[in-house]
């Protein structure tokens, strides 16, 4: 019998197509093909799922979800199953991060309302459970995409300071610990 983790790994989470231009390809090479030489170098990230992961964690730490648009035609996925995430980046200086998936999975288990007792009793199916996990995942990321897009609309250069993304995540820490170690908002580039 395959485990939930394995089944989850086979999935391709969806995201709203409108974030492709406004967020995903702003930071990654997604949609350009991996081997298009020079112009890809300027991008912060390689694969599109890397932006998805960041968006997911933004939603997770904000503890906010946003349901995806109903219309299936306006959704997309990377065509790259989760179990491959963090294993494909070959750019100089990058290392692989396969174990990050376990933490994402753990977070979904923690935050998704599922009757696992019933699952183990066989009263509900694994498929249904994995569906719920993926939905949760998509909704966290959807919130994250929205968050990033909003920041970009306010200031198109917001994330192009090297520490910007890092400070966003450290910001979640501040809120919880209520310390003033890091600035909440990265300074402007102007």
């Amino acid at each position: 019998m395959e485990s939930l983790y394995e089944l989850w790994g086979k999935r391709n989470p969806e995201w709203e197509e409108r974030y492709q231009d406004s967020v995903i390809s702003v930071f990654s090479d997604y949609g350009r093909g991996v081997n298009q030489y020079q112009e890809v170098r300027g991008k912060i990230y390689g694969a599109g799922y890397e932006v998805f992961i960041l968006a997911f964690f933004i939603g997770l730490y904000s503890n906010k979800t946003k349901p995806l648009i109903e219309d299936k035609a306006k959704r997309k996925h990377f065509g790259w199953a989760i179990s491959n995430w963090g294993t494909g980046e070959s750019r100089l200086g990058r290392t692989q991060y396969p174990r990050l998936r376990e933490y994402m999975f753990a977070a979904l288990i923690a935050r998704t309302d599922i009757d696992f007792i019933a699952l183990d009793k066989g009263e509900i199916t694994q498929r249904k459970v994995v569906d719920d996990l993926i939905t949760k995942m998509e909704e966290y990321a959807n919130y994250g995409f929205d968050y990033i897009q909003e920041k970009l609309e306010d200031n198109p250069n917001f994330f192009f300071k090297e520490t910007a993304f890092l400070r966003v995540f450290l910001g979640f820490l501040d809120k919880e610990e209520d310390t003033e170690d890091f600035d909440d908002v990265p300074e402007s580039l102007d």
Binding site: Y45, L54, Y61, Y97, F169, E176
Partner: peptide, 9 residues
């Protein structure tokens, strides 16, 4: 990602 710093929180 590479160093999983995203897990800081």
């Amino acid at each position: 990602l590479d160093r999983m710093w995203v897990l800081c929180a």
